[in-house]
Amino acid sequence: MEIHTFILVGIIASFVLAASAIPGIATFYTNYASSACYGNQNNGVMIAAASDAIWNGGAACGKFYTVQCTGDRNAIPHPCKAGGVTVKIVDHCPGCPSTLDLSREAFSKIADPVAGIINIDYR
Rank of each mutant, 00 (worst) to 15 (best):
M1P: 09
E2L: 08
H4D: 12
F6K: 15
I7M: 14
I7N: 11
G10Q: 05
I11C: 08
I11P: 01
I12K: 04
I12G: 04
A13C: 08
A13D: 10
S14W: 14
F15A: 15
V16I: 14
V16M: 14
L17E: 03
L17V: 14
A18D: 15
A18C: 15
A18Y: 13
S20D: 13
A21E: 12
G24S: 05
I25V: 13
I25E: 05
A26K: 06
A26F: 07
T27A: 11
Y29P: 01
T30Y: 09
T30D: 11
T30A: 07
N31F: 07
N31T: 15
Y32S: 02
Y32A: 08
S34D: 02
S35M: 13
A36W: 00
A36K: 02
C37I: 01
C37V: 04
Y38K: 04
G39D: 14
G39A: 14
N40E: 15
N40K: 14
N42L: 04
N42Y: 11
N42C: 08
G44Q: 06
G44E: 02
V45F: 09
I47M: 04
A48E: 04
A49E: 01
A50R: 02
S51A: 06
A53F: 09
I54E: 12
I54P: 04
G57H: 08
A59W: 11
A60Q: 05
C61K: 01
G62K: 00
K63S: 10
Y65L: 09
V67H: 03
C69G: 07
C69R: 06
T70C: 11
G71M: 00
D72N: 08
N74P: 03
N74T: 05
N74S: 07
A75E: 10
A75I: 08
H78P: 02
P79S: 06
P79Q: 02
C80K: 00
C80F: 13
K81W: 06
K81Y: 15
A82H: 15
G83Y: 10
G83R: 12
G84C: 13
G84A: 14
G84N: 13
V85R: 00
T86Y: 09
K88C: 03
K88P: 00
I89R: 00
I89Q: 02
I89V: 09
V90K: 01
D91V: 00
D91T: 03
H92D: 12
C93S: 05
C93E: 01
G95P: 12
G95T: 14
C96E: 11
P97L: 12
P97E: 15
S98P: 03
D101L: 01
L102N: 00
E105K: 01
E105S: 03
E105Y: 04
A106G: 00
F107Y: 05
F107Q: 04
F107W: 02
S108Y: 09
I110R: 06
A111V: 03
A111D: 00
A111Y: 09
D112G: 10
D112M: 02
V114E: 06
V114M: 10
V114W: 08
V114G: 11
A115K: 00
G116F: 02
G116H: 04
G116L: 04
I118L: 08
I118V: 15
I120L: 07
I120Q: 06
D121Q: 14
D121V: 12
D121P: 12
Y122G: 04
Y122V: 02
Y122C: 06
